[in-house]
Amino acid sequence: MTVVNQNLPKILVFSTEKISDPAIDMAGLLKLHYPPKVYTIVVPCSSAIKPKWILKAFEDGFDGVFIAADGTDCPYGESCVEKTSALVQNTQDKMKTKGIEPAKLRMAAICSVCSEAFVKQMKTFTEYLVNQQ
């Protein structure tokens, strides 16, 4: 990837305590490097993220928001998948009305051992956001 550090976009990741955050930890353990302007806030479940938090992140200066979703592994049940998709849809609708490109909010299921998938997501998302700048 040919991204100059200075212009790296800031990405806020919502990770989940039991599923995706361990995968992000393991990416560090395995020294799988990803862009350093990725910041994480841990929540219990990806279907607990309020759209207003995501909108606030854009308002405060984040360039992208990534939801590292539980997927079907969610300890609170499989309904997590459709509920997380619904809140993403809902937030993207709100982003449109505020003139924020909906693609700046991304979501992918990151299982507790999906470290490589996470790193790949962070690299491609960073690239996408760089091209938007």
Partner: peptide, 15 residues
Amino acid sequence: REQCSWAHSDNKPKA
């Protein structure tokens, strides 16, 4: 550590 020093051991100033 896991989400900073180790993940960005390739880039000390940014870490």
